[in-house]
């Protein structure tokens, strides 16, 4: 089984709202003191791939990212988690989000890197949260796609994909090659790499491509959508903290608040 996992490096989404700022004129988020991290759903995808490889007793996992030179950190971490190979396509041009342009770059890199049975992305990225790149990548590659997958098994020559739905779950049987987008579940919480593996990861080879290497021009088709406005909405409510001298009094006050709301519905 030859697996490719797409990883996006993003501004740490866990940065508290009070520390988050945007540059409204540039229509970009300010990095401030926030770190750059791998998008969580990409790590869920990698974890799902690692478990699949473990169960199958073999296979190769390639991690791929399209980003700034710093995205190398995401790929090193993937190697430390025990991906077999890693490739970075260097981003050129502006920061404007464009899932179609990203999908085209990733598709060109996938074709260059070889033939894959399974191509995985996260369900969405924690920055712009487009939730589109995996689906668009499938289209660019002419492959079928199943979204919101949380676990994968190999049965015969086929893949058994379990995915989450609004009301429960569904199972798909897919003939490789196929693209899947991955969501979180109790079983694909990303593993923490060992310190030794983190150190080792810096000695492993990492393929780098420029857009020109892939026969693409920078920003050539940035015409999907444009950010017309970006702002931080101001919305705070004043909270009445129930008071009272004893727990009993406080809880009773809380109960009265609750009942007042349900009565007014």
């Amino acid at each position: 089984m030859n697996i490719l996992v797409c990883l996006k490096q993003i501004l740490d989404p866990e940065v508290p709202a009070r520390d988050f700022r945007v540059d409204a004129a540039q229509r970009e988020a300010e990095q401030g003191a926030a770190n750059l991290v791998t998008n969580i759903f990409c790590e869920n995808a990698l974890e799902t791939a690692l478990q699949l490889r473990e169960r199958a007793g073999g296979g190769k996992i390639t991690a791929l990212s399209y980003g700034r030179p710093t995205a190398e950190d995401s790929l090193r971490k993937a190697l430390a988690m025990k991906a077999d190979a890693a490739a970075l396509v260097l981003h050129e041009g502006g920061e404007a989000p464009d899932p179609l342009a990203s999908a085209r770059v990733l598709a060109a890199a996938v074709k260059r890197l070889g033939a894959f049975d399974l191509i995985m992305t996260g369900r969405e990225a924690g920055d712009w949260g487009a939730g589109q790149t995996g689906a668009l990548l499938a289209e660019e590659l002419g492959l079928p796609c199943v979204s919101f997958v949380d676990s994968i098994e190999v049965t015969g020559g086929n893949l058994r994909l379990k995915r989450q739905t609004d009301t429960g779950w569904e199972v798909f049987e897919a003939a490789p090659p196929v693209v899947v987008t991955v969501t979180n579940d109790e079983h694909n919480v990303p593993r923490i790499p060992k310190v030794r593996d983190v150190m080792m990861s810096y000695r492993q080879p990492l393929t780098k491509f420029t857009l020109a290497d892939l026969g693409l021009a920078a920003g050539a088709d940035n015409d999907y959508y444009e950010v017309a406005e970006l702002f931080v909405p101001q919305k705070e409510t004043r909270c009445d903290f129930v008071n009272g001298d004893t727990l009993d009094e406080k809880v009773e006050a809380f109960a009265r608040y609750l009942i007042a709301v349900t009565r007014s519905m």
Binding site: V22, A29, G126, D127, V227, A228, E229, L230
Partner: peptide
């Protein structure tokens, strides 16, 4: 966008 921390208008 940004996990609900910001709002964007896209054209």
């Amino acid at each position: 966008v940004y996990g609900g921390k910001a709002h964007a208008v896209l054209e």
